[in-house]
Write a protein that binds this DNA or RNA. Sequence first.
DNA 1: CTCCTGCCTC
DNA 2: GAGGCAGGAG
Length: 226
Amino acid sequence: MILDDERLRQSVTKRTRAVRTAVLRWSQQNLRDFPWRRQSDPYRVFLAEVSLRRTTARAAMRAYDLLTTRYPDFEAAARATEEELRECFVSVGLQNARARLLHLAAVKVVEEMGGRLPPDMNALLSLPGVGLYAAGAILSLGFGVRAAMVDSNAVRLYSRLWMDVLPANPSPELMQAIGEHLVPEREHQVYNLAVIDLGALVCRFGRPRCSSCVLTHKCDYFSQGH
DNA sequence: CTCCTGCCTC
DNA sequence: GAGGCAGGAG
Ligand code: SF4
């Protein structure tokens, strides 16, 4: 495993239960509500992740609403031209890359997977535009299979929680390993969403709002008096 | 490193 | 005005 630094592994293990509990408790009153969180259809989760890539949730909604209306399933998305798909993304950016990858993925799902996403990590990772984060989201939110969703919010949150024991520039693989260690078997969907919302609302970029954070008792960054 | 637009925070 | 936002491919 990548988590081979003994001091870090011990620290993560020691705080896992408390972090899970605090995150899940916080989620009961603070989870944000978005259109893509109201359905667990794997295709819709997939569309949401394409729309949310390097894009704030508010903006991603514009693309997501257009996509779900115009292309209700993979067959519809595969039939569309790349230029038609591009229209859904012009207001949120990265339109060329998103349209190209979405179309390639839709064609592959239709031609090689019977028009449906499989609940299999390696199969999902074989799709154009689907990396560890998107595959984790599809597995956890779409299929109810335990998987970590390690996005920039999770990385920022975990980096601060374990600031004292983490290397100066932690690799993506290391942060992924920490995320996979922390995500619980029970309620992994809620946990994944709550970590993202904590990063977006409390442990934000720049100055985190530690005064309203439920993790201060397990946080290196807070303990150092920032 | 680029792709990328619009909005928010600093 | 600069930097960053539910990343991933080439
Ligand atoms: S205490 Fe502050 S730095 Fe630590 S997780 Fe909470 S918001 Fe982030």
